[in-house]
Write a protein that binds this DNA or RNA. Structure first.
Length: 517
RNA sequence: GCCCCCAUCGUCUAGUGGCCUAGGACACCGCCCUUUCAAGGCGGCGGCGGGGAUUCGAAUUCCCCUGGGGGCACCA
C-alpha cells in the first residue's frame, strides 16, 4: 500500500501529522488495510465519459483489493446542483455496473453522503480551525479581491490572496463587522517552502507555497468551498486513495494543507490525464455523444463502454484488448495507468461494441434489445399479429449489429408497412432482369414445400441457375422487393421469417410496380 | 501574466539503455471468403515533435525549445 513516510513533513513546522481517529485506517505494522475509494461527482450535469472512467478506475481498484467504493455527492455549489443530475448520474453508474458500498440509496457508517447534508461536520471543523488560529476571517470584498488580482497580473505575480486580513486585531474585526462587511473564512497557509503531492500516477509534483496563498474554505454564505468540503469528507470518511481527473492536481496541495491543519493523514492521490475529443481539443457537446446516457440511447452496451473506457489510460500489456469486468477487476493496477491524455475514438468504441454484441448469448442480446426498445413504438409490434419476436430475429442480425439501434434498421420491415429506400428503389428499377427474377421468385415462394429457409435456399438457387444469373445478382431484387432495402439479414432466413403470404404479397406489389402500365 | 501536467503510427497504446530494421488494436487501402451488408482470414500503408547533452550505444536519462492540456474563483 502507500508509504506513510511520503506524507510526513509536507509542511515542515506546522504541527504534527496526527493519526486519524478512524478505525479503518489504524493498523499494526505489516498489516495492510482495506482501501476505501470514492467517486465524488458534483451534480451539475450528466455523467460524462471522463467521469465514468474516473468512477470505473476507483471502482476497479476497490473491487480488486477487497476495498470499499463510496459514492459521495458534492453539491456545495447550490446554484448549479440539481436533484435531476443526481438521479441521472446514479442511473448511469448503475447501468455501467459500478455499484457502491456506501452512498445514496445504500447508506453506510460514514454518512450522510451528500455534502449539503454534512454542514454540521464542516462547521465543527471550521470552529476548531478558527480557535487554533489555523483559519481566520477575511472581510475583503469580491471587488477588492478582483482589483488585487488585476494588479498581480499586471505585475507578473501569481494571482493569490495578499493576506490583508491575516492579522486583524479584535478591534479591527469589530469595526469591519459594524461596517456591515461579510466575512469569508480562509486557511492560514505557509508563505515559504513548497508542498509536494506524491502522486501515484505522475510521481512527486512540487508546488511553491507562494503560489497558493490563503484560500477560502467557507463562503460568506456559510457554505464550505469545494476544497474544504472534500478534505473534510475524505478525512472523515476514511478515504485511502483518491483517483480523479488531472484538473484537480493543482487543488491537491490545498487539500494537503487542510489535512495538515486538521491533523489528519491524507489519502494517496492519483491524477488521471483528461480525455480529449477526437480532434484532441477538450471533449465537449460538439463532439457528439459524451454523456453516458447518450451512449445508452445510441445502443451501446455496458461491456463495451467499460472495456473501452478502461483502455483510455490503462493497459495490461499493450496486447490484450478484451476484458470482462471480472478480468478488469483482477488485472487493474495504478502502475499500469499512463499519464498521457487520450483522445476519444468513436470508431474503436463502435467496433468494440459490435464485438460484445456478437459475443453475447442470444437470449441476453434479445433482452438488451427489448430493454433498448422499451417505450418506443416498435416495442409493441414485436410478436404481435403474426410478426416475429425479437428472439426469433436475433440470430438473423446478431452478426451484423454494431449497436442495439442497428436492430431496428435491420428488422423494421418485418413489422412495419413496406417503405422503399430511395437508393433501393433506384437500384430495383435499373435492374433489367428484375421483373423476370421477381416472377421466378414468386413462383418458388408460392410452391415451395415446406416453406422454410433450407428449402427456399435450394429452390431459389436452382431458379437462379436456370436463369443463368449469379445468386447474388438474383437475390438482390428480391431483397429490395420484400424489405425496401439493399441491406438485410440473409435472404432465405428473411423470406422464411416473413412467411409465405407476406413475401408473396410484397413480390407481387414489386412486380406490379415494375410492369409498365 | 503566474503555476502544474503531458509528448511513440491519424487514434488507443506496448516499450523503463543494447532483445526495436519500434510490437498490438481501431481506422484506412488491397486480396480472399461471400447472398447484400457486416463478420472473418491474409497482406499493406503508417510513428519515436525539434535541438543539444550523457553513453561504446538512446524511443527509453538530463536540459532547452515547440506543441497540447489543466489550474490560478465566495465553481467543482
Amino acid at each position: 500500500m502507500f508509504n506513510r513516510a511520503l506524507f510526513c513533513g509536507i509542511l515542515p513546522g506546522t504541527g504534527n501529522m496526527a493519526d486519524t481517529h478512524n478505525k479503518t485506517t489504524e493498523r499494526s505494522p505489516g498489516e495492510t488495510i482495506a482501501p476505501r475509494l470514492r467517486f465524488a461527482p458534483s451534480p451539475t450535469g450528466h455523467l460524462h465519459v471522463g467521469g465514468a472512467r474516473t468512477a470505473l478506475y476507483n471502482w476497479l481498484y476497490a473491487r480488486g483489493r477487497g476495498g470499499s467504493f463510496v459514492l459521495r455527492i458534492e453539491d456545495t455549489d447550490l446554484a448549479r446542483s440539481t436533484d435531476e443530475s443526481i438521479r441521472q448520474i446514479i442511473s448511469s453508474l448503475v447501468w455501467l455496473g459500478l455499484d457502491w458500498d456506501e452512498g445514496p440509496g445504500v447508506g453506510g457508517d460514514h454518512g450522510p453522503y451528500r455534502q449539503t447534508e454534512r454542514m454540521h461536520i464542516y462547521e465543527e471543523t471550521v470552529k476548531a480551525l478558527l480557535a487554533s488560529g489555523k483559519a481566520y476571517r477575511c472581510y475583503c470584498s469580491p471587488d477588492e479581491l478582483e482589483h488585487e488580482r488585476e494588479k498581480a497580473r499586471a505585475a507578473g505575480q501569481p494571482l493569490v490572496y495578499g493576506g490583508r486580513c491575516r492579522a486583524l486585531s479584535p478591534e479591527e474585526e469589530q469595526s469591519l463587522q459594524t461596517e456591515g462587511r461579510d466575512a469569508v473564512i480562509r486557511l492560514r497557509t505557509p508563505d515559504t517552502g513548497s508542498t509536494i503531492v506524491p502522486d501515484l500516477i505522475k510521481g512527486d509534483v512540487e508546488f511553491e507555497n507562494v503560489n497558493i496563498g490563503d484560500f477560502i474554505i467557507v463562503r460568506s454564505s456559510g457554505v464550505p468551498t469545494y476544497n474544504f468540503a472534500v478534505a473534510v469528507d475524505d478525512a472523515s470518511m476514511g478515504i485511502t486513495h483518491v483517483i480523479r481527473g488531472d484538473d484537480h492536481l493543482p487543488n491537491t496541495p490545498r487539500q494537503l494543507m487542510l489535512f495538515e491543519a486538521m491533523g489528519k493523514k491524507p489519502p494517496a492521490y492519483g491524477h488521471l490525464s483528461l480525455i480529449l475529443g477526437p480532434d484532441r481539443t477538450p471533449l465537449s457537446k460538439r463532439h457528439g455523444a459524451s454523456s453516458i446516457e447518450e451512449f445508452i440511447s445510441r445502443g451501446y452496451v455496458r461491456e463495451a463502454l467499460c472495456n473501452y473506457l478502461a483502455l483510455m489510460g490503462w493497459s495490461l500489456d499493450g496486447e490484450t484488448t478484451f476484458f470482462s469486468m471480472d478480468e478488469m477487476v483482477e488485472k487493474f493496477s495504478l502502475e499500469r495507468v499512463g499519464s498521457t491524455a487520450a483522445a476519444f475514438d468513436n470508431d474503436k468504441l463502435l467496433w468494440m461494441n459490435g464485438h460484445y454484441i456478437r459475443e453475447m448469448e442470444e437470449n441476453e442480446l434479445a433482452k438488451r434489445i427489448e430493454l433498448f426498445l422499451q417505450d418506443t413504438e416498435l416495442a409493441a409490434l414485436h410478436g404481435h399479429a403474426g410478426t416475429p419476436t425479437i428472439s426469433a430475429l436475433v440470430p438473423l442480425v446478431q452478426e451484423k449489429m454494431k449497436t442495439l439501434a442497428d436492430f431496428v434498421d435491420y428488422t423494421d420491415f418485418f413489422f412495419l408497412p413496406l417503405v422503399f429506400e430511395e437508393k433501393a428503389l433506384v437500384k430495383l428499377e435499373k435492374d433489367e432482369k428484375a421483373a423476370a427474377v421477381l416472377a421466378a421468385a414468386q413462383n418458388v415462394i408460392e410452391s415451395v414445400e415446406p416453406y422454410d429457409a433450407e428449402t427456399l435456399d435450394a429452390a431459389l438457387r436452382a431458379a437462379a441457375e436456370r436463369m443463368e444469373i449469379k445468386l447474388g445478382k438474383f437475390l438482390q431484387p428480391i431483397r429490395i422487393a420484400v424489405s425496401g432495402k439493399t441491406i438485410t439479414p440473409g435472404m432465405f432466413e428473411t423470406l422464411a421469417m416473413l412467411g409465405r403470404e407476406i413475401s408473396a404479397a410484397r413480390l407481387d406489389a414489386a412486380i406490379k410496380l415494375l410492369s409498365p402500365s
